[in-house]
């Protein structure tokens, strides 16, 4: 695909986001304000992080259904360690991140070395993590430790009253790192190669196994970080958080222009996908008359349109290639 064609889905997502934002700003008073924009980032930071991890996995041609459960597991581990075992917040965060990364690595190893379908392995991972979270605590655990609250209150002051909160900063930071890794490092390029054509990547001498385990490890780490942000934003750990989040994350990735077959797309698109998701949600809250369930319907419709668009683009390219070969 040419550079322009390849980026049409991304451009389409940007156009949809711009239209949504302008439309909502015109329709609702006070929508177009810095505060709403910052809130958008803050509220959707956990979803955004899981979506960033999911982007790696989908680019490599896999899928990770465990992200929501792993996020919930991390949040409850942090909450219980701080509140009931008196751990220092930073130590608790580190342990939770390590745990989630390990879970991701484990799933990646099972997928690669035992050759079980990613769908099934991460599905089992989802049950496993959710079960562990509920075993640790069935009820949500509020976090009252001063150190944790201090961490959650950090931010870069923007104007007199407004801060860019730490959750939004971490989300943006993760995006930058992810964009750098996917575009400019060898392992990132081999993620694309793996998703584009596994056999070709293998024949080129890329280390398929390492790359596969890498993407699930990244996804596990990102879900863990999402759990950390969840505790910072909600000041609590919740074992039932993030039910259905894996689907929102996949939807955000696809709406952001990443092909579900792998190999095409990127984390910048995922940012747009998450923003579209958040904007629809915020607009529906601003409206006040619409049921919040319209969010689901709207996201489903957008998903449909984007997949159809991708389909049209890829099949057009396929036809041209065929003509080229026969001509």
């Amino acid at each position: 695909m040419s550079l322009l064609r390849r980026n049409i889905p991304l451009l389409a997502s940007v156009a949809v986001y711009a239209a949504l934002y302008v439309g909502a700003s015109l329709a609702y008073h006070h929508f177009c304000s810095l505060r709403v924009l910052i809130n958008l980032f803050e509220e959707n930071a956990p979803l955004g992080l899981t979506a960033v991890g999911m982007t790696f996995v989908i680019l490599a041609g896999g899928i990770d259904l465990s992200v929501g459960s792993v996020m919930a597991l991390c949040s409850i581990v942090i909450a219980v360690l701080i509140e009931q075992h008196g751990w220092h917040p930073l130590a608790a965060l580190a342990l939770a991140l390590g745990l989630s990364t390990l879970l991701g690595t484990g799933m990646g190893c099972i997928i690669h070395y035992l050759q079980i379908a990613p769908f099934i392995v991460t599905l089992a991972g989802m049950f496993f993590a959710r079960g562990l979270a509920l075993i640790i605590s069935v009820e949500p655990v509020p976090i009252r430790a001063a150190g944790h609250a201090w961490l959650g209150g950090l931010g870069i002051p923007l104007t007199g009253q407004l801060d860019i909160p730490i959750t939004a900063l971490v989300f943006l930071g993760a995006l930058f790192v992810a964009a750098y890794v996917t575009v400019l490092t060898p392992i990132g390029r081999s993620v694309y190669a793996l998703g584009g054509d596994e056999e070709a990547a293998l024949l080129m001498g890329l280390r398929i196994g390492r790359t596969k385990v890498f993407v699930y490890t990244v996804s596990g780490f990102c879900s863990g970080l999402a759990g950390v942000l969840f505790t910072l934003y909600q000041s609590a750990g919740n074992p039932s958080a993030g039910v259905g989040m894996e689907l929102d994350a996949i939807a955000a990735v696809v709406v952001g222009g990443t092909l579900l077959t792998g190999g095409v797309g990127g984390v910048c698109g995922t940012l747009i996908g998450v923003l579209i998701f958040g904007t629809i949600q915020t607009a529906i809250i601003f409206d006040g008359r619409l049921s919040s369930w319209w969010t689901r319907v709207a996201i489903g419709t957008l998903l449909l349109l984007f997949v159809l668009l991708q389909r049209a683009l890829t099949s057009a390219t396929g036809r041209r290639k065929a003509q080229h070969v026969s001509g």
């Binding site: 899928i63 769908f119 689907l247 929102d248 996949i250 939807a251 696809v254 579900l260 077959t261 049921s291 369930w293 319209w294 969010t295 689901r296 319907v297 996201i299 489903g300 419709t301 998903l303 449909l304 997949v307 159809l308 389909r311 099949s315």
Partner: peptide
């Protein structure tokens, strides 16, 4: 007809379907 991957094609209804059901019962 649209040639979508089954996971994606049915994901759409998974996401939207429960929303439609909520709209039917008015939440």
């Amino acid at each position: 007809l649209a040639g979508m991957q089954p996971i994606v094609a049915t994901l759409i209804l998974l996401v939207a379907g429960r929303g439609v059901a909520q709209l039917i019962t008015g939440g």
